[in-house]
Amino acid sequence: MQNPYKPYPVRIDNITVETEDKSLKTFKFVFLNPEDEKKFAYRAGQFAELSIAGLGEIPIGIASSPTEKGFVKFTVFKTGKVTSYLHAMKEGDIMGIRGPLGNSYPWDLLEGKNVVIIGGGFAFTTLRSSIVSMLQPENRSKFKDIHVIYGARSPGMLLYKDELTAWAERDDINMHITVDGTDDPDWKYHKGFVPAITEQEAPPAGTDTYAIICGPPIMIKFTQPVLDKLGYRHDQIIMSLENRMKCGVGICGHCNIGKELVCKDGPVFTLEQLNKTPKEY
């Protein structure tokens, strides 16, 4: 029997400030025991509990891609007790990660399909993991067209800017980057909210087109009717939930929506599945 609450010890290898307001940082971890990395084999869309002795644990989506070896990355928004402490930690510090947890995006289902990724704000982390993984030469041929619609308040609030720019140059992925507003005269991408850009740029619905949406509730609320209008079926709309969690392994009871436990049965659900559960998210 393995203790499901015990984290793997890790060292903070690198910290990157992602946004102009410094509220988001990316933490790159390496495992203290190299064999733990193999046990941490994950799929894009899964999350982990970041564990700081003396502070507690927080569930955070895995931002690195399974194809990136030797480390795992997480992008964390500074908001409360544990996240604020983490933001003050330094490279070289020791902490723990526990996982991988949750079900991931449905990669078996998505194979051979057009994939439309719609993200807003800082909920772009597991979407980055997905994009990096899909764009790997050995994986790219498994998917048809890839569209990405990603929006933030301003250019300085976009995550992973260098990668976004590099992806925008490629012809095997259709990037639709947008900001709510900017006075930068050189801004060469969209201006406008994600739902509006989705309406303009998302490919038409079809039996083999699937959309993954991650973002703040308000973005999801206004994007979903757009997808409905475009004809997407509810089993073609995939979402990831962020309920409050403690154990992350389906035991503590904190994260349920009806009989589903978001940590174990999710965090990824289709809208069709969510239509059958209480709206407790």
Partner: peptide, 22 residues
């Protein structure tokens, strides 16, 4: 009823992670 919360409790230079009925 089985639900629990998890908290870290520190005593100077050491501490414990405990779970409490919630």
């Amino acid at each position: 009823c089985w639900c629990f919360d998890v908290q870290d409790e520190n005593y100077g230079k050491s501490g414990v992670r405990i779970r409490n009925w919630d």
